[in-house]
Design a protein around this nucleic acid. Structure first.
Lengths: 229, 229
DNA sequence: CAGTGGTCTAGACCACTGA
DNA sequence: CAGTGGTCTAGACCACTGT
């Protein structure tokens, strides 16, 4: 009856899916489960901990473990570099810089990133192509207060995202998805029609509390972001 | 120098973010780290395993552990029930059923869900309101081959999602996000204008290889889905 | 083949929290 | 205060995989 934590996890999950353990019901405690599966308590613990991480069960000291009444559904999305995203589709990646300027940070961005009054930012507009078809439009601001060295990079050969990933090893971000309308400028860039609905990602990034960058990525019409869970 | 796995994880992460351990570089192995932190190897292992799960580092037997050159950025989104989504915004939730019919499964859906020829499905159109403002339009198909009992539910008091969550304790799903255009029918439902861009979620769900449901959720204009990582 | 991470154990103590 | 999960340990064996 010896089992691995994977087998235990799968078995418990199947007991839940098959209705053997009803939503909301109390499950046996770890010692009992270790007994049932003929393994150490730590092994059961790992299986249960992963199920809790996956949002399937709910654990509380003293109160025990229960099957979640309505399992928390979580979808995980990889946020790849555009280059990789395109290359993984088997297409050839091409990048181009459309505009580059140093500006006073506009008010809406200052507020969004919590920047000082009069802070300067590098404003970049870029395009990413898949097999020469427009794929993604990138409108990016980089805080020069945080990253003064960005002013020296020209971003002609490769995009700011790749530069940032190489420069800042790790950061926190807030990301949001929405649907926006193609205005004349975007439609022109993306080779789409005015008024096309565009799947849009916005991302604001911080490094140790200091704002690094804000970017708005508009995908060509018809783009989907898909995952399984 | 005794440390918890959380402290170790945080310390390693800060070593990476501060550039102490460069992207791509080889990190000390678990035994060395256990020595450094004055703890058991299992404790280091847990810290490192979580960092690997988070996409920060990359581990391979014999080859050792390296800092990822470009960290895999993953965003986790909760997929809540609409009811909870609305109530958490502090608004009052209201639901209404707009249409209900039993139909032959259309071809595109048969293909999408891998259903048999001539399979019947329950087709539902519903609206979800927040404080009486249109919030989300739901267009759902439920396979009657898999869930014949759905035909008996009337879905007048509460939506199919809540019924499904209570009926099927756990399932696999494929979910995708996109931007679509409001046609006349959708614009009418959502009280928006024709041609508004709508953030749209599609979800197909299976239970033990058998298709359960396909749903298309269109949000009112301006909706955003946000998360941090 | 040997080095590294992956997993398991048996036991211990601790931290929370429900009754 | 007592029951449950959370974490740690010291040691062991195993599974991969680079050399």
């Amino acid at each position: 009856m010896k089992s691995t934590y994977r087998e235990i996890k799968a078995d418990i999950l199947s007991k839940i899916t098959k209705g053997h353990w009803q939503p909301g019901s109390l499950m046996p405690n770890e010692i009992e489960l270790a007994d049932i599966y003929g393994c150490a308590r730590a092994t059961v613990n790992r299986a249960m901990r992963e199920l809790a991480d996956d949002g399937i069960i709910e654990r509380r000291r003293k109160a025990g473990t229960r099957v979640r009444a309505s399992p928390i559904r979580q979808a995980r999305f990889d946020i790849p570099l555009v280059r990789r995203e395109i290359e993984e589709k088997g297409a050839e990646y091409r990048y181009s810089l459309a505009a580059r300027s140093v500006e006073q940070t506009p008010d809406w961005l200052r507020e969004r990133l919590n920047l000082d009054d009069g802070a300067r930012a590098l404003h970049l507009v870029c395009m990413h192509y898949a097999d020469d078809d427009p794929y993604q439009h990138e409108d990016r601001w980089i805080s020069l207060a945080t990253l003064p060295q960005a002013e020296k990079a020209d971003f002609i050969q490769s995009g700011p995202n790749e530069w940032l990933v190489a420069t800042i090893p790790f950061s926190n971000a807030e990301i949001s998805f929405s649907a926006t309308l193609a205005d004349a400028r975007l439609a022109d860039f993306l080779g789409s029609r005015l008024g096309d609905p565009l799947f849009t990602i916005e991302r604001a990034t911080w490094f140790e509390e200091r704002a690094i960058t804000y970017v708005r990525l508009a995908y060509r019409p018809g783009h989907r972001m898909t995952t399984r869970y």
